[in-house]
């Protein structure tokens, strides 16, 4: 059982690549501006699938970004929660991209998005059962074997829960990290959105997650639609989420933090402003740690 030791070693290596600062999710409309102005951004994260292509401008731009910024690869399409072996073509594309980019971190979601060969291309919630736990762990193992390194799994926002879901989500996550040696990408906005939608206590959830496994934090904006909060990635980070984030880093210590924005993408300056706010909170926590 060399898993904990192996993980400690890899965490040290990867932490050196992605600094415990705030970064931004890199989206196509901002790439030219970043290449031209080289703003002071801690690091960037891209959606892996958008660079599965064989060549052309997007990959060339990513290569240039990589020269100046640490890059993290964030996947949305692997479907860790689906039965059967993972899509090997998808995994091969991811491996090829990992070899090209040498990312500081690689992450995927704790969700499912395909069944019986049909992809639904959305982050769908799992029932938290022993069966689902075994499926996710097998798929995380397969991914880590294929890539030759550990990945992070991210907690998703959800809008429904299943009646038969006996394992609490934080416990399910803790089991996945313990059984596979993967890390946790803790999305604080997702915790807030799901807590609101399902009526659970976000602080109790954050207290129950495996703190030592957290290697990255995500922050994003959400919107309200009727009685539910929707994880739109289309607004600034909400005040209650900033408060939860502040409490989280006070407990976990400095951790790489990403500002995500996908819909109604604003000028880069807005993302940089959000990033600076996260950096400010991280610095306060660095100061305490020192």
């Amino acid at each position: 059982m060399d898993t904990p030791l192996r993980r400690a070693a890899t965490i040290t290596r990867r932490r050196a690549a992605i600094p415990s600062r705030a970064g931004i999710g890199l989206r196509t409309p901002h790439i030219r501006e970043i290449l031209a102005t080289r703003p002071n951004i801690g690091w960037v994260e891209v959606h892996s699938e958008n660079f599965f292509c064989d060549g052309g401008q997007p990959l060339a731009y990513l290569d240039r970004i990589r020269q100046d910024y640490a890059v993290s690869l964030h996947g949305v399409g692997l479907s860790l929660g689906s039965l059967g072996p993972l899509d090997t073509e998808h995994l091969t594309c991811l491996k090829r991209l990992v070899e090209r980019v040498e990312p500081g971190l690689i992450s995927e979601h704790l969700s499912w998005s395909a069944v019986g060969g049909r992809h639904l291309n959305e982050l769908l919630p799992l029932p938290y059962t022993e069966e689902a736990l075994a499926v996710v762990c097998r798929n995380v193992h397969q991914t880590q074997e294929a890539l030759g390194q550990p990945i992070l799994v991210e907690n998703i926002s959800s809008y429904l829960r299943f009646t038969h879901s006996p394992i609490p989500e934080p416990e399910f996550i803790a089991e996945v990290t313990a059984r596979t040696g993967c890390g946790l990408l803790l999305d604080v906005n997702n915790v807030f959105v799901s807590a609101t939608n399902h009526g659970f206590d976000a602080r109790a959830y954050l207290a129950a997650i495996p703190a030592a496994a957290v290697e990255e934090v995500h922050l994003a904006g959400h919107d309200r639609a009727g009685d539910l909060l929707i994880d739109t990635h289309g607004a600034r980070v909400a005040s209650p989420v900033w408060r939860l984030y502040q409490e989280t880093v006070a407990r976990l210590g400095p951790v790489p933090t990403l500002i995500e924005w996908d819909n109604d993408l604003p000028p880069l300056a807005v993302l940089v402003d959000e990033m600076r706010h996260a950096d400010h909170l991280l610095e306060a926590c660095h100061a305490v740690a020192a």
Binding site: E49, G77, L78, S79, C93, R118, H119
Partner: peptide, 11 residues
């Protein structure tokens, strides 16, 4: 038309 790939760009 079912999507056959996790990469939405191919849909």
């Amino acid at each position: 038309v079912p999507s056959l790939h996790g990469d939405l760009n191919r849909y």
